[in-house]
């Protein structure tokens, strides 16, 4: 299994504090299990509080239904910005966000700066 990149990003001017960054490994088919591992780490960092999440999916092979269900059922996120690069990422991101109504505001971005700005402007973030 690829390395799990979960970190709490509290640096950078203009960036909202306490953003949890979840980076999906490139070229990997994201299963429910992989998604759950990331989500568990995110919950651990959040430690019971609501935190904005930057979910980076650039270059992932695919995102399974189970994985999508894990991300969209998150109860620890105040907002989720999905970050991708290619049109493929955009399609996958929209399937990720387009199912059941998410528990928090969600949106797709192609640049990190826009994503972080949106997370910062989100009222609950």
């Amino acid at each position: 299994m690829s390395a799990i990149n979960v970190q709490s990003d509290q640096s950078g001017e203009g960036h909202p504090g306490n953003v949890i960054r979840l980076v999906m490994p490139k070229g990997v088919d994201i299963t429910g299990e992989i998604a759950e591992t990331h989500a568990a780490r995110a919950r651990s960092i959040a430690n019971g509080s609501l935190r904005p999440v930057l979910l980076e999916i650039s270059g992932v092979g695919s995102i399974s239904r189970d994985a999508r269900a894990v991300f969209t059922s998150s109860r620890t996120s105040s907002a989720i910005a999905v970050l991708g690069a290619s049109p493929v990422d955009r399609v996958m991101a929209n399937f990720l966000l387009g199912g059941d109504p998410p528990p928090c505001p969600t949106r797709f971005f192609t640049t990190e700066s826009e994503a972080m700005a949106w997370l910062g402007s989100c009222p609950h973030a």
Binding site: G59, S62, A85, S86, P87, V88, D89, R90, V91, M92, F95
Partner: peptide, 18 residues
């Protein structure tokens, strides 16, 4: 199978698969 290009056609393929 989408190609490694991850271009618009791959986006359509990905959408088709989904």
């Amino acid at each position: 199978e989408p190609s490694a290009a991850r271009d618009d056609v791959d986006a359509v393929i990905t959408g088709f698969n989904l």
